[in-house]
């Protein structure tokens, strides 16, 4: 879907981004994480064809952005940090305008406006002027204008910025639903935002890409090990020490730590250089134990992020 090769952006002498190279396949949601000034907005603006990169190549859906931006613009929907709303237009009228400039035919646009309003829960404010809307509704109108022409790629720059917790939850739900139909790029400096909505994370710092992958992959790459949370109901007459000893003896297990014990239910934190959840569960079941929890461990994004930035600074 997206291919960036050695992309850099300079504002005067100052390097705002790059060199950045990556590839994003179609489907799912990708999060761009970084502190303020990390280069997230610059990168998203380049992908949204709002900004030209100083060097390097950007391809979206196989089309070179520099040589054919017009064709790329038909395939993207973009919500900048501040939704681009005309204050003198009502919501329905605005969405119709955006639909038309994005290329929807006049006979299709009215139906599409209705669909998008229902999808983003804007039907009740169809006739309201955008200047009279609350911040949450404005963000929703911003998302509605970005998806009105059913773009393949949806770019959302800090979509939850300034929203209250309830609005954040609502918008997060909306993004989760949009993931089913679009490839989504979301930027945020709120870690839980990215963690809960995105399948893949790109971490930016001072214009450079310092890590990428799923939360688990970043975690494994960072420490060189996978942390597996194992919950097991021990076989009758088995002591916790026996189970810990048993797990420690399995191949690829480097360390085992008891997290919690509740009668026969034992929770262990297991370190391994590989994702050995399959062999681990088979061995436990074979030995008569029940596996009630088995997941890659919660090196939470927040601590990973801090660790990543710490490494970079060091």
């Amino acid at each position: 879907m997206i291919q960036l090769t050695e992309v850099r952006k300079y504002f005067g002498e100052k390097r705002a981004l790059g060199p950045v190279s990556f590839e994003i396949p179609p489907g799912g949601a990708v999060g761009f994480l970084g502190l303020n000034g990390a280069g997230k907005t610059t990168l998203l603006r380049i992908l949204a064809t709002d900004l030209r990169s100083s060097t390097g190549e950007v391809e979206i859906a196989g089309i070179n952005v520099a040589t054919n931006p017009h064709a790329v613009r038909k395939k993207i929907g973009y919500l900048p940090e501040t939704p681009p709303l005309y204050r003198d237009m009502a919501v329905g009228e605005y969405l119709k305008f955006v639909g038309q400039i994005k290329g929807l035919s006049p006979d299709r646009v009215d139906n599409r406006v209705r669909e998008v309003e229902e999808y983003t829960q804007l039907t009740s404010v169809h006739d309201e002027f955008t200047q009279n809307l609350s911040h949450g509704y404005r963000q929703r109108v911003g998302i509605a204008q970005a998806i009105i022409h059913k773009p393949e790629l949806l770019i959302l720059d800090e979509p939850t910025k300034g929203l209250d917790p309830v609005q954040v939850l609502e918008l997060r739900g909306l993004i989760m639903r949009l993931k089913e139909e679009h490839t989504i790029l979301v930027s945020s400096h709120v870690l839980t935002e990215i963690s809960q909505t995105c399948d893949r994370v790109f971490v930016l710092n001072q214009g450079e890409l310092i890590a990428s992958g799923s939360e688990d992959e970043i975690s494994a790459n960072l420490s060189g090990t996978y942390r597996i949370m194992l919950g097991a109901r021990m076989a009758p007459d088995t002591r916790a020490e026996d189970l810990v000893h048993f797990v420690q003896g399995l191949p690829d297990i480097t360390s085992v730590e008891v997290v919690q014990q509740d009668d026969q239910l034992l929770t262990l934190s297991v370190q391994s250089p590989t994702d050995c959840r399959g062999s681990l569960s088979r061995s436990l079941v074979k030995s008569g134990h029940d596996v009630v929890r088995l997941e890659l461990g919660s090196n939470e994004l927040e601590s990973l992020f801090v660790e990543l930035l710490g490494q970079k600074v060091n």
Binding site: T49, H70, Y78, P80, P84, Y86, I101, K102, Q145
Partner: peptide, 14 residues
């Protein structure tokens, strides 16, 4: 000034 230029910039309009 109003930030709506970005909408035109990123739309398939010449």
């Amino acid at each position: 000034q109003l930030g709506t230029q970005v909408l035109l910039n990123t739309s398939p309009v010449r």
